[in-house]
């Protein structure tokens, strides 16, 4: 089982991204969970969302405390929330950032994890016209899980995006294009 924890702020789409990842993995034939942790829903407040992906039925219904992958949708949270809490040794940390690698690495001096970066804001602005980083991050996370080959992911994600945005067809193509670029735009910044 792969467990993923998303850190974002209310309104940035971390929950939507987690639900879309569940959709995509489902379409690829897996057992999935995608769920947010709910508190008072406020725009801009820190929120957490989760995914479990497995080849077997998933019965557990708790939050995720020892994730394989952590996604930081909003890097201003790094100072506010312990985003790497419980991250498995050798796990993966994905950060949405346009900063230089050495600046990001300074924030995680002791970490035993692979750190990846994607400039999801830039990609989403270019393809969707707005800073909604969840589609690029979805693509990057899907790649980091290693569970779904690129071609199969692209096929599943088109279905999932079309399903999710059935009432807003104008945004489907931009999201799909941003996802295609993002698969290869995620880079590892530590050794």
């Amino acid at each position: 089982m792969i467990e993923i924890r998303w850190h974002g702020r209310g309104g940035q789409g971390a929950k939507t991204a987690a639900l879309l990842l569940a959709d995509v993995a489902f379409t690829a034939g897996m057992y999935v969970q995608g769920f947010p942790e709910y508190g008072p829903e406020r725009m801009g407040a820190p929120i957490t969302a989760y995914n479990r992906l497995d080849d077997h039925v998933i019965r557990v219904h708790s939050n995720i405390y020892e994730p394989d992958i952590v996604v930081v949708v909003d890097e201003t949270l790094i100072k506010a929330v312990d985003v790497t809490a419980g991250l498995k040794p050798g796990g993966k940390l994905l950060i949405n950032s346009k900063r230089r690698a050495e600046d990001i690495l300074k924030e995680f001096p002791e970490i035993n994890a692979e750190i990846y970066v994607i400039d999801a804001a830039d990609i989403s602005i270019r393809y969707i016209g707005k800073n909604i980083p969840n589609s690029p991050l979805l693509s990057a996370v899907a790649r980091l899980t290693g569970l779904i080959p690129e071609a199969e992911f692209m096929k599943s994600v088109e279905e999932a995006i079309s399903h999710k945005f059935a009432s807003k067809p104008a945004v489907i193509q931009g999201n799909v294009d941003s996802i295609k670029e993002s698969w290869n735009a995620v880079i590892r910044i530590n050794e």
Binding site: V32, Y38, H61
Partner: peptide, 12 residues
């Protein structure tokens, strides 16, 4: 059913 835990979680 349990609020949020199952009501708002996507599952198979």
């Amino acid at each position: 059913q349990d609020g949020f835990i199952t009501s708002h979680a996507i599952e198979n």
